[in-house]
């Protein structure tokens, strides 16, 4: 009796997930497989393909621009992941205190996350505009920190840090939101017990807050790594001269000398690295 029920239930389950599996297969698995396939061909814009074996990969691994973009991506990833996590944590702890207008402040913090990328990008470009921007006005004319006006976004080296700052500002609210939700569920008596056990505010943060937040922090870091390794629009719109991996891939595939086979090879490597990273992370840090 019960085994029949179990079987029926399993069959129903399969039927229920089938549409989702179909859609994922069509929209995710098929492009991935096709991408792997493409990476072994020299692809022309008219669609004609010539099999080139591993040539795309060897070309890529001999291309200094590729290594440069890996370096940029690593800096971008570390800066944004650390930045959003730390800022999100600080904001969530602050917003977990009692004060007047707390609910208003809690809501306002989310604004950067809601704002459309394209509009805030223009705002940021204007802030750092070398002639009219408020940044140069404050640094040069008001504070007299330096004599020369800098084009921070025009210079790829400094633009990388503007892009990192922008991403932190735009995306820390999601980290903040997840941390705050968890903070509100930490039992108050744990803090009281830690205080009784001789821990001051710092000790209570270290021994109660951080361990309680551990899995949320790990999840936020994981999500941020996945999102930002593939992040395109924020970087491209704000400073197209910052060549992170997705931007480099885009230039390979669609700009100048179009090399779609080469671009496919980049994304195959990126996919493998990402899958490997996530696997390690999930096993070692999240311990699922």
């Amino acid at each position: 009796m019960s085994s029949i029920l179990v079987k029926n239930e399993a069959r129903l389950g399969l039927k229920l997930v089938a549409p989702a599996v179909g859609i994922i297969g069509l929209l995710v698995i098929y492009p991935i497989l096709f991408n792997v396939y493409l990476s072994f061909f020299d692809v022309q814009l008219n669609g004609s393909k010539t099999f080139v074996g591993l040539d795309n990969y060897t070309d890529l691994l001999g291309n200094p621009r590729y290594y440069h973009s890996i370096g940029v991506s690593v800096i971008y990833l570390i800066g944004t992941v650390v930045g959003t996590t730390v800022l999100g944590l600080a904001a969530s702890i602050l917003m977990n205190q009692e004060f007047r207008f707390r609910n208003l402040a809690r809501g306002l913090i989310l604004l950067p996350y809601f704002a459309p990328v394209i509009s805030v990008v223009f705002g940021w470009q204007f802030i750092f505009d070398p002639v009219n921007g408020i940044y140069n006005h404050v640094v040069v004319d008001v504070l007299h920190l330096t004599d020369t006006r800098e084009n921070l976004i025009g210079n790829p080296d400094s633009a990388l840090f503007v892009v990192i700052l922008f991403d932190i500002w735009k995306h820390f609210p999601i980290a903040y939101l997840l941390f705050l939700a968890k903070l509100q569920s930490v039992p108050k008596d744990l803090y009281e017990a830690a205080a009784i056990d001789g821990q001051n505010a710092w000790g209570r943060f270290w021994h109660v807050t951080l361990p309680e937040l551990r899995f949320v922090i790990a999840t936020v870091v994981l999500l941020r790594i996945i999102w930002n390794l593939n992040r395109f629009e924020d970087v491209y719109l704000l400073a197209p001269n910052v060549e992170t991996l997705p931007i480099f891939t885009y230039y390979q595939a669609f700009a100048g000398i179009v090399d779609q086979g080469g671009a496919a090879a980049i994304s195959v490597i990126q996919l493998l690295v990402l899958v490997g990273l996530i696997w390690l992370y999930v096993r070692k840090v999240l311990k699922w």
Binding site: P187, D189, A193, I196, D197, H207, R214
Partner: peptide
Amino acid sequence: LPPHKRNIAMVFQNYALYPH
């Protein structure tokens, strides 16, 4: 004096054990 300087020990109703 804040609690951590009072040198007291306490048993809580819900035990308040550190879960980790």
